[in-house]
Amino acid sequence: MALAIVSILLLAVDVNSRLLQPLRSTLATVVSPIFIIAESPYRVSRQASATLSTRDSLIEENAKLVRRNLELSQIAQQFVALREENARLRQLLGSRQRLGAKVLVAELIGVIPSPNTFQVEIDKGADAGVFVGQAVIDADGLFGQVVEVAQFSSRVMLVIDAAHAVPVQVNRNDFRSIAAGTGRADRLELEYVPITADIRVGDLLVSSGLGGHFPRGYPVAEVSSVVVEPTMTYAQVSARPLAALDRSRHVLVVFDSDVKASESAEAPAGAPQ
């Protein structure tokens, strides 16, 4: 009986506030080895296949990587020039310079096996300086945000989780909106888009940085369908997330100085709306 009361109290407190965050992260530190052990057979098999791969395949892969590196460094050259130019123009405008964000590479060590939520476990935690509310990206776009930090691991809520939302803008014309997760893989929904808004299939949505949670300018999704019914107030716009949410093994945790500064002012919430 007492346990039932304690359970219900815990439930009420945990659902409505974030007071139990320290308790959760302590427990998460206890259970995080379970994820690491559960993942270890796959890790071993990957390492074995890497060790046992043939010389030919290594040579081929190396050649491919060299080509890719060349392509990327060519883009990076342009990027340096553009960044300088951008900084000069911003100075002319008198606005604050955008700082390059520091990132931390983390590896996925587990997926939370729950049908109600899309969360993954990564192998960097409080000891690496990760904090709740940090944005996580992968090679293709915004991945999610950190919702729980344990000592040596942390939980990341994916952008498609139904409790997640990210402020975005259309890259083509800077139209602002909020991309909310739907709880279904491969689908985000834009909220409160008027039917007259200029938004088309194929438009790139980038994070606008307006909520103070996410750094600005990371690609989030691509508009996949726009349904406009004249009788409705809002258009139904759905988008396909760009990050490889079910395939990425390595992700980047973004340390954005702007975000960290504003983090202390507002309480970190699951859905930054």
């Binding site: 346990l3 815990l10 439930l11 407190v13 945990d14 959760r24 998460a28 259970v31 379970i34």
Partner: peptide, 29 residues
């Protein structure tokens, strides 16, 4: 006993990212 079951349930809550207490309550019941 029920206490052990309840503590196990708390760990499962964290494991499954459920609200704290759901699985604890279920396992204790």
């Amino acid at each position: 006993g029920m206490i052990t079951a309840w503590i196990t349930g708390l760990l499962v809550d964290v494991l499954y990212a459920d609200p704290l207490g759901v699985n604890g309550f279920c396992l204790a019941a």
